[in-house]
């Protein structure tokens, strides 16, 4: 059981580190398509988008572990579920900050009305509420069970929201969507060389932080016993 949760080993952590190092250095050197609106800020795609990839990977992990918790009621799976959400929220906040700075310089405002931004914000609200829910239940088994149910329920409705929103609230101005003014994610081949490794690097970093936090929490629990 434990082996499935713990992805021990040095290689993937080292790989994540090297990929990010590469993305941070080469991301500023690589030739990017020069667009009038975005100019050099297009390089944000390596970092800002990575935050969302990382967040999504974490929240999906949490969803899977909540499902697994309800199958066998093993406490370890609940720990992974909650720590994945913690890291997911961290990535989400970083994604919001990097996005808002970029938006101020590109669109002239920190926040604009846009399906992609609203979807991200709602995701944050859902998982902050998840943490509040956990905080208000004292019994650990009950807490694990109830929050797993909420996690599964909310994740699915959030996915529905993210898919539905562009359809009902019109077009987005966010790059990376068909018809958006800046098709920045229509990446040139030179940008792709950095983009894909960067995405993998952020996701691996997320798993690394989550792994550390899970181990920390397990040690603390052992200590209390």
């Amino acid at each position: 059981m434990t082996d499935k949760i713990k992805i021990t080993g040095l290689w993937w952590k080292l790989l994540g580190f090297l990929l990010l190092l590469y993305a941070v250095i080469y991301g500023f050197i690589v030739e990017i398509p020069y667009l009038d609106v975005t100019k050099e800020s297009l390089r944000n795609v390596f970092y800002h988008v990575g935050m969302w990839f990382g967040m999504f990977a974490m929240l999906a992990t949490s969803f899977i572990f909540s499902l697994r918790y309800l199958r066998g009621f093993h406490e370890k799976e609940d720990i992974v579920a909650v720590e994945a959400v913690n890291v997911g929220i961290l990535f989400g906040i970083l994604g919001l900050i990097t996005g808002m700075i970029w938006a101020k310089n590109t669109w002239g405002a920190f926040w604009v009305r846009d399906p992609k931004l609203d979807g991200a914000a709602v995701g944050m609200f859902i998982y902050l509420a998840y943490m509040v829910l956990r905080g208000s239940i004292d019994d650990i088994h009950k807490r694990a069970k109830v929050s797993a149910v909420f996690n599964i329920f909310a994740f699915i409705l959030w996915i529905v929201f993210v898919m539905v929103l562009p359809r009902i609230s019109g077009s987005t101005i966010h790059p990376g969507q068909d018809g958006a003014p800046i098709m920045a994610l229509n990446l040139s081949s030179s940008t792709r060389v950095v983009f894909y490794p960067a995405m993998a690097g952020w996701i691996l970093l997320g798993f690394w932080i989550m792994n550390l936090r899970v181990r920390m929490r397990k040690l603390r629990m052992k200590n209390e016993e």
């Binding site: 709602v122 609200f125 859902i126 509420a129 509040v132 829910l133 208000s136 239940i137 004292d138 009950k142 109830v146 149910v149 909420f150 329920f153 909310a154 409705l157 959030w158 529905v160 929201f161 539905v164 929103l165």
Partner: peptide
């Protein structure tokens, strides 16, 4: 049903339901 399992039921009710009811 979820909020009833926790304490401070009524503020939880709003906090939990508003974001997931948006779609």
């Amino acid at each position: 049903a979820i909020a009833s399992r926790a304490s401070n039921n009524f503020s939880l009710m709003a906090v939990l339901s508003f974001p997931i009811i948006l779609p």
